[in-house]
Write a protein that binds this DNA or RNA. Structure first.
Length: 569
RNA sequence: GCGCCUGUAGCUCAGGGGAUAGAGCAACGGAUUCCUAAUCCGUGUGCCGCAGGUUCGAUUCCUGCCAGGCGCACCA
């Protein structure tokens, strides 16, 4: 597609007195395929030339009448646009050859040139269960991690575990009051969660519990042996549970640097803020006023001497820059923390760090119940493990009906089940809230991962039956791919690189997810109209090359979403 | 009260300064002597929240309003 655009730009630029780069900027894809494949809109020229857009388009059309290029065959004016139609033979050859040659790396670039990008994602709070809410950060963050890698950046995944804070004071209080050793041994995360919920219920009636919790957290920060021992125990037990979930999801992090990791650096942050003269005492606490920037004040230290979330986040940001010299630092954290990140980045700026402008909050909407939001404290939450298990179970049942002879049923069920859950979180714009609905979460038809996976599996099936000739390149076979479905499919496949780029650039895996639906749809249309195995040998060969390229695009794309592409399902 | 986000078909949502605003679901009707029917084809629906503004042109950008969500110093 890029080569086609360049060719057209070179051609038009001298005719309209613009630079080729400017022409490329203007080129767009027409709304209907029948109009053409690349459109040059003439609106911007209208002012300069004092002619109406349709007149300019027609004029350009006349000048190009009868001419053709390497990748285009005709230029037709239509209203205010000059529409170029591709030359399928050379275009198909160019695109398909590219895909086959690049294989697993098709769509990748070296744009990032090895620069570091830190991605803070997943980051669950220890001692709280891993709910479906956390999956959004986990899944979106992981996809961004993979996307940036594909663009040649060195992605550094950081799991900023919530392993510090007043919540530990609460847990210690709850455990000391009501804790039972056997139950903790039995199912630690579940039990700690129950204690956490119980604490909040009791604290409603007895506010002194909150004071007690704050006091225990202060002891923890002061290194009190008993407090540290509890903390250590709770943390370790929780980590073991998370490890199994990440293992099942195939997610790894370069670092598990939780909030506690930065404890030694907090004094430095506070000293720095004081030295810069931006911090001041207020009601016994240490705060930074941000009134001049229309932001509420930031609190670095409470009146009881304990630090806060943002103090540790400041230390973490500084640590990340000093350790990795990132070109970007992403925080995949819910939209409800937008203000927090505005404050964080502003304070970093005030501390004199130029790199503050390279820090990006990548927010996402909440997962809600029909009745309202989920709440860990109130115990209103759906466990991720339950969703995953039910999704896989449902996939199993469908496989039993649709494809009972399948060899690796369990592998396919896991691929489809996990794919459905992941895709549900990736396919829509991340800033929107999601209403949790079991039916939708477990839906395998329509615009879902299963739709894409199914197209992939069908291709693999055809290739298996065909033997290995799809591996042999043949220009002549490609030149036979002239049916509408074939050309449309190739055009769709050509878009992967730009979709990967814009997906990463806008921090929206949904761009890539939607695109893969298009690829699968175009493949399905092809599949129903163009027989592969039952066509003439040479055409069959061409079609095999085409579907192999399609298989590659789907596999690469799903891979970047963290979704498996099974060969059979 | 202030700030941020969202508002598009019955439902869930894409899209986005320009050509006739699109998908999926749901409903109905069709397609399998043939590569997996988890598929494909067909049928209908839209004050693109409301009102102004900028523009040759706004559903898209700006302002105001309305509705919903989220947040706003000792939680994270």
């Amino acid at each position: 597609m890029q080569k086609l655009k360049e060719e057209i730009a070179q051609l038009i630029a001298p005719l309209v007195a613009l630079e080729p780069v400017e022409v490329i900027e203007l080129l767009e894809i027409p709304p209907e395929a029948e109009y053409g494949d690349i459109a040059f809109p003439c609106y911007t020229l209208a002012k300069k030339n004092k002619q109406s857009p349709p007149v300019i388009a027609k004029d350009l059309g006349d000048k190009l009448a009868g001419r053709e290029g390497v990748y285009w065959q005709k230029a037709v004016p239509r209203g205010p646009y000059l529409n170029f139609h591709i030359a399928p033979a050379s275009y198909n050859l160019e695109i398909l050859q590219n895909i086959i040659e690049q294989g697993q790396t098709y769509g990748n670039t070296n744009l990032g040139n090895g620069q570091n990008v830190t991605i803070d994602y997943s980051s669950p709070n220890i001692a709280k269960p891993f709910g479906v809410g956390h999956i959004r950060s986990t899944v979106i963050g992981h996809s961004l991690y993979l996307l940036y890698k594909a663009l040649g950046y060195n992605s550094i995944g950081i799991n900023h575990l919530g392993d510090w804070g007043t919540q530990f004071g609460k847990l210690i209080v709850a455990y000391k009051h009501w804790g039972e050793e056997e139950r903790l041994e039995e199912d630690p995360v579940d039990y700690l969660y129950r204690l956490y919920v119980q604490f909040h219920q009791q604290a409603e009636e007895d506010p002194s519990l909150d004071d007690e919790a704050r006091s225990w957290f202060r002891s923890l920060e002061n290194g009190d042996a008993e407090a540290v021992a509890y903390w250590e125990r709770f943390r370790q037990l929780s980590l073991e549970t998370y490890a199994s979930i990440y293992g099942f999801l195939g997610i790894e992090f370069e670092y598990y640097h939780g909030e506690s990791h930065y404890n030694q650096m907090l004094d430095r942050v506070i000293n720095l803020a004081q030295k810069k003269g931006i911090a001041r005492e207020s009601e016994g606490a240490l705060i930074i006023d941000l009134e001049a920037y229309d932001l509420p004040p930031v609190m670095l230290r409470k009146k009881d001497g304990a630090t806060l979330y943002i103090t540790r986040d400041l230390a973490a940001a500084i640590y990340r820059y000093e350790t990795f010299e990132f070109s970007r630092s992403l925080y995949v954290v819910g939209a409800e923390q937008t203000l927090h990140f505005q404050q964080l980045f502003k304070v970093l700026e005030l501390l004199g760090f130029k790199w503050a402008s390279n820090c990006v909050h990548v927010p996402f909407g909440m997962i809600r119940f029909k009745e309202g939001r989920m709440s860990t404290r109130a115990g209103k939450i759906i466990l991720l493990e339950e969703v995953l298990q039910r999704a896989v179970e449902m996939a199993r049942e469908i496989i039993e009906v649709k494809n009972p002879d399948l060899k690796d049923k369990e592998g396919a069920a896991i691929a489809v089940g996990l794919g459905a859950v992941r895709f549900g979180d990736l396919s829509n714009d991340r800033v929107k809230n999601i209403e949790f609905d079991w039916e939708k979460a477990l839906d395998f038809s329509g615009e879902t991962a299963a739709y894409i996976q199914y197209a992939h599996a069908r291709i693999c099936s055809i290739i298996r039956k065909a033997g290995s000739q799809y591996l042999i390149w043949d220009d002549r076979a490609i030149s036979l791919l002239l049916k509408e479905e074939e050309i449309t499919l190739v055009k769709t496949l050509a878009l992967l690189p730009e979709k990967i780029f814009s997906s990463a650039e806008s921090y929206r895996p949904s761009v890539l997810a939607r695109y893969l639906i298009d690829v699968a749809r175009e493949f399905n249309r092809f599949y129903h109209n163009c027989p592969v195995l039952n066509s003439e040998p040479e055409l069959q060969h061409g079609r095999l090359l085409l579907i192999n390229a399609t298989r590659q695009v789907i596999a690469n794309g799903l891979g970047l979403l963290g979704i498996a592409a099974p060969e059979e399902m």
